[in-house]
Design a protein around this nucleic acid. Sequence first.
DNA 1: CCAAAAGTGTTCATTCTACACCCATGG
DNA 2: CCATGGGTGTAGAATGAACACTTTTGG
Lengths: 248, 248
Amino acid sequence: MKELYKESVNREGFAIPYYEIPYEKFFQFGLSVDCVVFGYHENKLKVLLIKRGAKPYLGKWALPGDLVYPNENIESAANRVLRDLTEIDSLFLEQTKTYGQVDRHPAGRVITTGFYAIIDIAKHDPHAAAWADGIYWVDADNIPQLAFDHNQILTDALRILREQVGKQPVGFELLPSKFTLGELQALYEGLLGVSFDKANFRKRMLSMDVLIDCDEYQKNVPHRPGKLYSFDLKRYSELKSKGSNFEI
Amino acid sequence: MKELYKESVNREGFAIPYYEIPYEKFFQFGLSVDCVVFGYHENKLKVLLIKRGAKPYLGKWALPGDLVYPNENIESAANRVLRDLTEIDSLFLEQTKTYGQVDRHPAGRVITTGFYAIIDIAKHDPHAAAWADGIYWVDADNIPQLAFDHNQILTDALRILREQVGKQPVGFELLPSKFTLGELQALYEGLLGVSFDKANFRKRMLSMDVLIDCDEYQKNVPHRPGKLYSFDLKRYSELKSKGSNFEI
DNA sequence: CCAAAAGTGTTCATTCTACACCCATGG
DNA sequence: CCATGGGTGTAGAATGAACACTTTTGG
């Protein structure tokens, strides 16, 4: 590949505006998106993995992702991938990082942009899209060997999720719309791998003023039923724009 | 452009492994890097801008950047751009975000990955690379209209810098290698647009244990000379890996 | 009755904030 | 002498950690 460049472009030769250098050499990149989809179930953080239904890495574990079409924005492509899996559209979806090692894709120079998404497992039942032979929720702390550089992409996404969860109420996206403070605490503890004092955790959460008291209680639990809360997105946005940071 | 895709690929038709679909349609992307280079001078945060020496946007203000060569890693390209400007190699350089609006580049589909870098203005005197007609330090709070979507890229980089500066000692990269606590405080205040109590700021900084007392003092200042400190990168890395976070 | 998890109050230590005050230098 | 910024100590407020205790449900 080295020769491609040497043959066509002389670095010092940039007195020629690059706009007028034969462009074809530069327009050889492919672009893809890869989504790290997080869910939470039975006290454990899960990641959605597929078994690839296409070469290369046919039959191997991978992150759901696809090539971006030439007429498609990157974010749209990521949304499309998720829609193909979950049938829903407006998910929490955020760019993580872009990966461009020259040799990361066997078929040529493919750049990939990572995204992370969060979905409520109870509410959505993802199914294999056309490009996947199967789809599975895998424990985030027990990830198999993945295709391409997907282990790296996943590790980075996990780090970013953990950074965010302590600073924004990202956690609420992982829970059903109504939840108890105990469930919320278990979630945070699971994500961050630490444990909090119950009394202190509640005080902090309630003082953030982003929880709506639903005036409802758990039912059929073999212990005192917990009060249900939901997340006040509107209030959160207001406070956020005023500079609050929601540190745990 | 819409037709390109429709003509060659039927989404439902992905029973055909995409690896075997004519690949040319997907390998039409160009990739570039754009660097937001920060410096600090006379109590003000500056950004390095160029006047473009090439079409498109010839003669307009822009961020320094260039197309990535097909055999070149993204980070290497960003490093190359900076090296062309500053003649130095190992700068603080970090990816920010990737931009891929379909119509962001008039010459075709060009994705760009943003980076931010920090250099000590006193130590380096950047010069126009071949692709630029001129190069200028511009006040970060007074940025002109830039080419492409560079205003967006810059805004994002600025936000990320501010987020980082409160959490990591990024600030030290902006100062000369030996500095007084007063200079450090002025830097933080300038970056974040807030002011700190002198006594408290010093206590916090010194308690972080990442400053080396140089046992030297300022000279020829019309006030009591301040003690000079330098940043202990090694110590910082140690503490960082143990989980310290250096919040201000 | 017990187990299990909800929910609350209080103490003590730590950290943060504000502010007052002294110090060393050039002019 | 003054102006300027360097440098430090302390009181009181706010916050955080630890822990003990009560409550409500199902079994």
